[in-house]
């Protein structure tokens, strides 16, 4: 047993986090970051309005480079559909099934594109990932 694992017996925070199983990953429900506002624009696509980071560094950079207070991102049709379903009620499995039916995608194709897209949204902290049971995995701002 590695030293880290031995220590983890007594100090759980030191331990390695076991990766989620496929079933656990599929049960995760993405949820919008509450600080982001969004609305539908002409054509049905969704426009996100993301506030500039408000910590000290964000304020300094904002003043130096005259960064606008909010950044706008326009999602395409498919991205908008996924975004709308990131409401904390639909699991990733639900979103995949919906995408597969709506856009006539093969299940695997839908799975790859949806999981990649949600991963990007989570990395940019646009959505949080809620495991069933209420534990947040990602995306606090």
């Amino acid at each position: 047993m590695a030293l880290r694992d031995r220590v983890a017996k007594y100090v759980p925070a030191v331990g390695r986090h076991s990766p989620l199983s496929r079933e656990q990953t599929m049960a995760i429900a993405p949820i919008h970051n509450a600080q982001i506002t969004w609305n539908r624009v002409e054509g049905g696509e969704i426009s996100l309005s993301i506030p500039r980071r408000s910590d000290r560094l964000g304020r300094v950079i904002g003043r130096l480079f005259r960064v606008p207070d909010r950044k706008e991102i326009l999602l395409d049709e498919v991205g908008s559909t996924v975004w709308e379903m990131c409401d904390g009620k639909h699991s990733i499995a639900n979103i995949i099934a919906e995408m597969s039916n709506t856009y006539k995608l093969n299940r695997r194709e839908a799975e790859v594109s949806v999981t990649t897209y949600i991963k990007i949204l989570a990395e940019r902290r646009l959505v949080g990932l809620v495991q069933r049971g209420g534990k947040s995995r990602h995306g606090r701002r």
Binding site: D76, E77, K104, L105
Partner: peptide, 10 residues
């Protein structure tokens, strides 16, 4: 190509 009506042929 998939998603033809939603992307390429939109």
């Amino acid at each position: 190509w998939g998603l033809a009506a939603n992307t390429l042929l939109k």
